[in-house]
Design a protein around this nucleic acid. Structure first.
Lengths: 227, 227
DNA sequence: TAGATTGTTAATCGATTAACAATC
DNA sequence: TAGATTGTTAATCGATTAACAATC
């Protein structure tokens, strides 16, 4: 019940990073106040929606003035949990794992990658940008020892389950899953999936939509005519 | 107007890859028929929603029987445009570009990567899994010469706009954009964005949500009490 | 104060779920 | 035929947009 009332809808949550990004840009550009109307233009959401979204979390604006860019930016960062340092490890030091380890942007926002893990002895001991690749056997020990709170799964899909299994016995609270596998972690671990192939398929669908037009039209016409 | 009636909602489109994936698995497991009820269990959508979704595109089932797994799988593949070969190139042969080039899964589904492109002379001439890295100067020529229809943008955000600029003068019809930049391509190029940092922020939000509970509750209570 | 813009309620729109007649 | 399950309509639910009183 308190569980029920506390939740903010996913639709809103997914927009928060956009607000954050936009306000960060404005801050860089030395803009110090902004109205929902102006934000609307920059973001492509309606001003009404922006005000509704923000009011889920508090009253950040001022009538007749708008929002203070810096303070709104900071509030949203806090809401996103970006005010605390996140300790992160990456399981799987293949191309994807290494690519992610090279993304300096994560660290900029407080997500510090402490180590990568792999089974491949040729990789173990190497470093990516000073981040060591360790033996996956040390995974749970390392996590608990270092208070890691986020684990990135960048192993092939068929290995993902065993990794999740290990992780669920550690202090990790969030999993960022790049594998195809649907992870069932039970516990209170939050899983965020990145299914790249879904995104590619969506692109393909949209490129194909025109050719589908006739078929879709036919279906819709049928329904309309049945009225 | 015909533009209007033809569109299927994004909510439905985003579920199509899930249907495809699930049916592919069933096919592998030699299941040959399935009801919306059973699909519901596997996918976590309601049976009603599944039937509604599919009926956007046609009548694929049979009363009293359900759906034939193979034919439904094929129909959805067709809807997603997976029945035609897509020629793809990757702009940016850094870690991300290379990681994507190594994803064999794309090719399995008909997305063939013909080449990577980069500015770095040290990379040009190398191969990733037999896929050559070429000079970005050849980009537009190569695309038009080879009828490439999808370009992946895996360059740093500050270079993304110039790449998009070049692409918009080619026969490319789809851009899979991994950079932070908001691309404005005009024309009929479809852009699908993968904003990894947004996904990470969403994870962080969800891990942080409990701590936010009080704040959110206060807001909601206020609104409820005001009634 | 007058003008601007918020916070918030009410109206609309769209998506999901329930229900059931059609039909295999 | 009887049972099962679809396709489809109607009801519900939730999210977006519009409108406006509150207030800086």
């Amino acid at each position: 019940m308190s569980e029920d009332i506390k939740k903010v809808s996913m639709a809103v949550v997914k927009r928060l990073p956009k607000y954050h990004q936009c306000l960060g840009q404005l801050l860089k550009d030395n803009v110090d106040r902004i109205s929902s109307q102006e934000l609307s233009q920059l973001l492509g959401f309606t001003a009404s929606q922006i005000r509704q979204d923000l009011n889920n979390f508090g009253e950040f604006g001022q009538q007749g003035y708008g929002y203070n860019v810096e303070s709104l930016y900071n509030e949203i960062a806090k809401i996103l949990g970006l005010n605390t340092l996140h300790k992160m490890i990456i399981v799987g030091a293949g191309n994807l794992g290494q690519a992610l380890a090279n993304y300096e942007d994560f660290e900029t926002h407080g997500f510090k990658i402490l180590a990568l893990f792999d089974v491949n002895p040729k990789l173990i001991g190497l470093k990516i940008r000073n981040i060591p690749i360790r033996d996956v056997d040390e995974l749970d020990f390392f996590i608990n020892e270092n208070d890691v709170d986020i684990a990135v799964i960048a192993v092939p899909s068929d290995r993902a389950h065993e990794v999740a299994e290990i992780l669920s016995k550690t202090c990790v609270r969030g999993i960022w899953n790049f594998s195809m596998a649907k992870l069932r972690t039970g516990k209170n671990i939050i899983v965020e999936n990145v299914h790249l192939i879904d995104s590619l398929f969506t692109l393909s669908y949209r490129m194909n939509e025109e050719k589908l037009e006739e078929r879709i039209l036919k279906q819709k016409m049928k329904k309309v005519l049945n009225r």
